[in-house]
Design a protein around this nucleic acid. Structure first.
Lengths: 163, 163, 163, 163
DNA sequence: TATGAATGAGCATTCATTCAT
DNA sequence: TATGAATGAATGCTCATTCAT
């Protein structure tokens, strides 16, 4: 049941402006009562936070190959532009609540990328920014960002050998 | 008077989650009544849209030099992370209202960058994504993004001559 | 309009368990919208507090004669048992909110009574307790407390001369 | 088990505004499930009513001496101001439910006091009112009401011989 | 007996918008 | 132009009560 709520919530949060998603709506979409949502999650904020963790666990990419990392991320951004927006929404709320959730997620990603890029942290940051920027474009502009994988790898100097 | 309202509004929208800014608040900050806001702008949405245009006009960067463009944008993102967030907020609302405001702004920026980059549209898109991604980091992570100017230019192959 | 709300609210708060009075109800009784209540009073608590002050101002008894004081208070308790209960309700809430409203009201009354009783503070406290206790009985038991005026005065030793 | 629930409930009802005590809370405090509470007591109201009877049985004061009666009651009011508030809360609810619980309790007490006071019902009522009024002060004002025992007895004309 | 998931009506509060002045 | 009183639908959240297990 909890699972069902999380699933319905993620779908909703991905399909419309996150701030417009109401608890009533989530309840209806999950086929449960409003009360049950507050039985499992003690507040809407908590539901949203659990949604992020839940999502992170399920979709964390396990690869050591740079090209795969880039390609897979862009593919995901293309297929699920709303989820990216939802994550940003939660990160922002957490920021105003003095949590460092966003920073942790960022640092985790950065560490992984840094090793893939031979230790160059600056380059790693730029790559993440590029991917996140494109993910934003996928969402706001309906840009087909998957096409940019090769260009990114070339720009970073991994055009030939790593493909 | 209208000017005064817009100015107060921009300040507010930049300093807190945009969805939490209320008309009453804007009125108080501008030193006018709520009614007057609706006299000039017919709805809150319109005020927000005018705010974007108003801002774009005032802050559009007039330069043909790539390095200046990058540096100036990152400097601005560093100084005003909230404004970037506000623009995104309006773009998103417009998107759901079937307006292509975001696309227009994107294409304007892209055209300019494309000529600076010798016609390479892909590269231009990646550069914009990088800048926007970093602007997001400046906002969400309080990252000092100004430092990345040189790295960006180098990565794009403009490290020496254009400095 | 504000006056109208306060009047309607006092009537409601006096006629049913105060904790069961809802803002919607007050609005309906006053013939205004819910929003207007929150326009004037920023919260239900504030409305309740203002109601107490408003009431205190209107009904503060100006007399130096002990017998009049006792008689008038018991008469009022008889006619308006619900108001006494409402005051207690607000005092309790304030107590839990770390305000000393109840203590202030108590001390004000005590000072007045003390002078009437020739400076005997203990006796003054007992008299107040008697009146408040009877007011509670008027409310909970529908006891006709007005009848006790003479007995009180006698008990305190003011049976003859002060009548 | 039932005993355990009643005990936990009384503690809760005495330590915070009675209307803020929830069944969930009682369950947690008693170490049982919510369901079990509704198994033993068919509603929250019934639990509250049983709590009153239960309390009355355990704490009914068996004495024929007036001074002891006064002293013991004030001592109890001092030590357990919240319980007095809880009783009032139940009495009020019962009143609105057209029960005469409060009246019965009052008449029981009155009868006892009347005989102690040589048959003077008026004086008995005043004494009860004084004690209940002071109990209210103990609760609302954190007044040390135990100190008033002697003054009460003196005021009633039992200052010397009955001590 | 005993559990706690599940319900849904009800609550205080917010806020864009209108309109008489 | 300019005001701010007035509206009311919508929101997150609470809680006594039920019921399948």
């Amino acid at each position: 049941m909890k699972e069902k709520i999380l699933k319905a919530a993620l779908k909703l949060y991905s399909s419309k402006p996150p701030q417009n998603v109401t608890t009533k709506e989530i309840a209806r979409a999950a086929g449960v009562s409003v009360g049950l949502i507050f039985h499992y999650f003690h507040s809407k904020n908590e539901l949203e936070r659990e949604l992020v963790s839940h999502f992170m666990e399920k979709h964390s990419l396990q690869t050591e190959r740079l090209d795969e990392f880039v390609r897979e991320n862009l593919r995901f951004a293309k297929e699920n532009p709303g989820i990216f927006r939802f994550l940003q929404y939660v990160f922002e709320k957490e920021k105003y609540a003095d949590s460092d959730l966003a920073i942790k997620v960022y640092e985790d990603g950065l560490k992984k990328l840094k090793t893939m890029l031979g230790g160059d942290e600056r380059k790693a940051t730029l790559l993440m920014a590029m991917i996140d920027g494109l993910a934003m474009y996928a969402f706001l502009l309906d840009l087909d960002v998957e096409e940019f994988s090769d260009s990114i790898l070339e720009t970073l100097g991994f055009g030939g050998e790593n493909r």
